[in-house]
Nucleic acid binder design. Structure first.
Lengths: 169, 169
DNA sequence: TGGTATTAGTTTGTACACAAACTATTGCTC
DNA sequence: GAGCAATAGTTTGTGTACAAACTAATACCA
């Protein structure tokens, strides 16, 4: 039972390391740009889809709308983004970047994923396949099939799919 | 550039899925036990080391002491844990579980990792080796060598190692 | 057309998570 | 043994993150 247990422990440790590096990188971004990781992510999301609805930002970032409202408040108070109430449908708010916001997004570093992408692209195709297969197995184990995929990397395919919330009351 | 790009995107997606499943599981724990994932994790950490110092809890959970203080406040107000000021060194606070806390820890589900561990242990050794190798590559890419590993799974080896903090002032 | 359901966004309340500042205590040094 | 450094824990302030309740506007439908 020794070798197998060690392997399992190694795998868990590796996963935790990946988590931590992504978090560390986020703090690094904050030191370099003055805004936080989520804020930068939001700015990049806005830049890609402007003018974009609040709920679309939430969907693309896989966040709750209430969370996005807070992030937008802070971006707006820093003069990086701007909310514009739609005239056709007055429930809708469209978000766009200010000139300052656009300048920042141009010279800002990559979001956490960029780090991974850059590193992976340097590997051989054979390696990539093996890594992809391994992660697929992890995902299978976790029964994560129903989880919404995608993110920034694939601009299409980005539905919410998260209505499966119920209360325990 | 097509196939490689797709592979990279798949890998990133898988990583995000693993993140999400761990988070979902944490919410599931909350629905079933009434306490949050971090609180349950803290309780298990206390159960393993009681009576245990606040700073030791922080080290084992890789959290900031200030964060642990908040979690302990909530555990204490729910009658699950108890703070005892040490008599030998009056700076020290030792934390232990109440009877209710001990009952809860006995019948509580596994922390997020448990889910992964259980699934991995069902795989063949060959598979485990391949997954471990793939994750090692990811960790290499991220340059995560210096990151402190470990967690609950290996009771030994659990030093803080996080003094590399500096301000960006 | 009047009423109900749905949708978009916001507000409120709770829980992390961390840095920095602060208090109390202990250790160390001259 | 007085004074300063180090240590343990807490407090304060900021920023996520989400559920639930709420407001305003639009859509649907009988």
């Amino acid at each position: 039972m020794g070798e197998r247990t060690d392997l399992v422990a190694d795998i868990i440790d590796d996963i935790r390391r990946v988590f931590q590096v992504v978090n560390e990188h986020s703090k690094d971004v904050e030191r370099r740009t003055g805004i936080t990781g989520p804020q930068l992510w939001a700015i990049k999301t806005i830049a890609e889809g402007a003018p974009i609805m609040v709920s679309d930002i939430a969907a693309r970032m896989h966040l709750h709308a209430a969370t996005v409202v807070g992030i937008l408040d802070r971006l707006e108070s820093r003069g990086l983004a701007r909310r514009v109430r739609s005239q056709e449908d007055r429930r809708v708010v469209r978000v766009e970047l200010t000139g300052q916001g656009e300048r920042l997004v141009k010279k800002a570093p990559e979001v956490a994923q960029g780090l991974l992408v850059a590193g992976l692209e340097r590997l051989h195709t054979k390696n990539l396949k093996s890594i992809a297969a391994s992660l697929d197995q992890l995902v299978d184990i976790l029964g994560a099939q129903g989880i919404p995929p995608k993110l920034i990397l694939s601009p299409e395919v980005n539905k919410p799919v998260r209505q499966t919330r119920r209360t325990a009351k």
